[in-house]
Each structure stands twice: as C-alpha cells, then as structure tokens.
Design a protein around this nucleic acid. Structure first.
Lengths: 105, 105
DNA sequence: TACATTCATCAAGATTTCTTGATGTGTAAT
DNA sequence: ATTACACATCAAGAAATCTTGATGAATGTA
C-alpha cells in the first residue's frame, strides 16, 4: 500500500521543526542537560553543579533547548526549574518513524 | 582489538553515537538529501539536479552523512550511488525511546 | 592516446555557533 | 534600604561549520 499522507495529531511535525529539535540535541552539553533532566525537573543551580558548567554557559544552552520546545521552565522564588518536554521527544521519534516508512516502500 | 561496549545489537547506542546522528541530520541540506534518498538509492548526479546543489557542496554533505553512518555508497562505473541506512535511523529512534523511558520512571 | 564525465578533496573565505566575563533583573533576607 | 542570591542577557572573541572555486583521481568513450 502507498504511504499515507495524513497522520495522527501527535505525529507529523514538519521537517523544519524536526530539524530544530535535532539541532538542539546535537550538542554534547545540551545532550547532558537533557539526560540530566530525564529523571525529573531540576533548578539551574543544581544543573550547574551537577554538570560543572559556568552559569552563563548553561543558561545559553538552556535557552536553545527551550526555544526548540524541548524544555519548559517554572519559576519558584529565586529558583528556576527546568523540565524535559517529553512531547518534543515523541514528535521527533514519530518523525523518524515516518521517514522510515517512506523508506520501506 | 575492538573493545566492544556491552549493548544489544540494534538498541542502545551510546550518547556519543546518537549525537553524531543528530548532528548529521541537523542541517537543512542534509535533511533534504536524506529525504531524497528515503525512496531508494540515487547517484550523485541525480541528487545534484534534484536538489539544485553545487557538486562540491553536495559531496561535502554526503560525506558528513556517510561518516555518521546514515548513508552507504556503491560505485558502479562512473557513478556513485548513495543509499539511506535505515539501521541508523532505527538506532536513533531506539535511543529516543530509551531517553523517554528514563523520563517516565 | 586523448578527452569527457563523475565524483572526491582541498584551501581560503564566509557564516554560524559557542564561550567568556561583565552587567542587568528579580527575589528574598537582614 | 541594603545586601546576597539565582538567573538571564549582552558583546566580543574563539571555534566549528559551511561554501566556493579549483584541482585531482578514476572510469569510460572516441
């Protein structure tokens, strides 16, 4: 059967969006951040300590990840907590699945 | 002496390997190349025409993709045919799944 | 042999991305 | 009000990546 052009809601992100996610993840520091956040949210100061990064450096990468939709943040008092957005990872996986579908035809 | 990291064959690629794949895919031109190759193999001259790219430019990006393990090539006469390595895409998807698993625990 | 075709590779410049240190903003404690 | 803390943002330099045009290697054709 031919590949289906339509797909469920959570699927089907555009190539551009997929590329934004790929680009955000394709950096060693940002990947460490994502892995550090996989178990659950952390505040910036915990991350700087855990990863041994300069604060400004971490902040830069957190912004990249947030802009890509991979992280959300929440402010509580003086601390800012970052959290991994599983939705973005799912979308990327679905995009990969779609690509593999095209292939197997 | 290839000290093999302990991991099941298709799953469980290291973060470094995942990052190499992410980096290779995180470029608009390379993403176009990958999508162009999804239906099946193409020779370089077909790709240059289809994508409207300078030959040297395309060659550069093909090398990046091949080095990352996303493409394989096959020489036939004067032509070189490139083919998408579905295995690499699967590995990347599995790596994503693994990351999502860590998250939900 | 001589020549054209296909593709890879190289070096130099252009562009993008990252890092660093300084400064700014908001919050809370004294 | 002053100070300390947590974090974001900025500008300038450093580093990585991409592009371009030229050249080279391999294959096939006349």
């Amino acid at each position: 059967m031919a590949a289906q052009p339509q797909a469920p809601a959570s699927c089907c992100i555009a190539g551009d969006q997929a590329r934004a996610l790929l680009k955000a993840l394709a950096d060693p520091i940002r990947l460490q951040v994502v892995e550090a956040l996989a178990p659950g949210e952390r505040c910036v100061c915990e991350l700087t300590e855990q990863l041994g990064l300069a604060q400004s450096k971490l902040s830069f990468h957190l912004k990249v990840l947030k802009d890509a939709g991979l992280l959300s943040d929440r402010q509580q008092g003086r601390w800012t907590y970052y959290r991994l957005q599983g939705r973005a990872l799912e979308q990327l996986r679905d995009w990969l699945d779609q690509l593999m579908l095209c292939r197997s035809s």
